[in-house]
């Protein structure tokens, strides 16, 4: 059974772009009223609005009214409403409290609201496991295809609030700062995909998805080598690697990963656009699909050696603090 990405869409308010002629893979400025009626929009925080819009665009591009299942990943959930309810509760000392922020704060509100809007009674689930949140949802999508379902809507989103900025800054300043450089910034965004086991006109094949728990660099290289050979692809057949790193961090895992490939392999750093958030690897996948479709790499994320040849195979690698490693291989 093969897995195809029929369509994808991203809303990325935090996007940083450089260069006037960017071939934008994402939307940063969305008129949400086009996608969501006012009586529902009024309660929706950023993370839900972004997700409903991205989900609807992905479905529209796939020519679908309704998916058979809705799967969402989110690392930190609905933070705006969590913070709002907490603030309210602490200030009022558990007195009279507004219920809206509470009901909007549960992690599965994103998937639930999409299901509600689409009137979709299909399977609906939410994964929340740091930098594997999206990947767990994507694995579940593949399992659905194996079970005979089709047209699965799968996506991921995270938003940031002041408190998170403060927490992360504080943690980074106390020295737990692998992967942090002067380029580092926190982002937020939502990416959604329609996946199918049937190839369509603009489909991109999701050839392989491999998750690993905590590991060491040499074990990572061994697994990567196995992963590539299990998909009958040699390292020199990978046309572009997209990394969840920033340039020149000295991260030993990204270094070990790159050693498997030629020094001159074209490399892109998606977080230069998206910033860091737990589910930003969903943007990386959307970006990879966009690059394969348009055969062009945005200036702002390209790190080294822009390619001259046709782009056929892209490999995405991400990890979080030496844990939650993922390889994602896509092909045109």
């Amino acid at each position: 059974m093969k897995t195809y990405i029929t369509s994808s869409a991203t809303v990325l308010p935090s996007a940083k772009t450089v260069g006037a002629n960017e071939n934008s893979a994402y939307l940063s400025d969305v008129n949400y009223a086009e996608y969501i009626e006012p009586k529902l929009l009024r309660r929706m925080s950023k993370v839900i609005r972004m997700s409903v819009a991205a989900a609807k665009i992905a479905l529209r591009e796939a020519g679908l009214e309704n998916p058979e299942a809705i799967l969402v990943g989110t690392g930190l959930g609905c933070l705006t409403d969590t913070q709002r309810f907490l603030t309210d509760m602490c200030s009022a000392e558990e007195g009279v409290l507004s219920p809206t922020a509470f009901i909007q704060s549960t992690h599965n509100t994103i998937a639930g609201q999409i299901g509600l809007l689409l009137e979709c009674n299909g399977y609906n689930s939410t994964y929340s496991d740091r930098a594997h949140s999206f990947e767990q949802a994507l694995l579940d999508a593949q399992l659905h295809l194996l079970e005979g379902s089709d047209n699965i809507l799968v996506g991921a989103a995270d938003e940031t609030v002041d408190l998170v900025e403060n927490v992360v800054r504080s943690i980074n300043e106390t020295g737990n700062s692998s992967g942090v450089t002067k380029d580092y910034f926190l982002g937020e965004g939502s990416s959604f995909f329609v996946v199918s086991d049937k190839k369509k006109l603009n489909s991109i094949e999701l050839k392989g998805l491999k998750l690993m728990p905590r590991t060491n660099p040499s074990e990572l290289q061994a697994v990567l080598t196995d992963f590539l050979s299990s998909h009958s692809i040699a390292p020199n057949e990978i046309d572009l690697i997209i990394l969840g790193d920033w340039p020149n961090t000295g991260d030993k895992y990204y270094a070990a990963f790159r050693e498997v490939f030629n020094n001159s392999i074209p490399t892109a750093f998606y977080k230069k656009q998206s910033g860091h958030y737990f589910t930003s690897s969903a943007y990386a996948l959307h970006l990879g699909c966009h690059i394969l479709r348009t055969q062009s790499i945005p200036e702002s994320i390209s790190g080294t050696h822009p390619p001259e040849q046709i782009l056929q195979n892209i490999l995405i690698y991400n990890h979080y603090k030496a844990n939650k490693h993922s390889f994602c291989l896509i092909s045109k």
Binding site: R43, V96, P99, I103
Partner: peptide, 18 residues
């Protein structure tokens, strides 16, 4: 046409009390 629901009724109760 405002599309109010049971959650809004609770919010109005909160408004009256606060």
């Amino acid at each position: 046409s405002l599309g109010l629901d049971s959650i809004d009724a609770l919010e109005l109760i909160v408004l009256l009390e606060r």
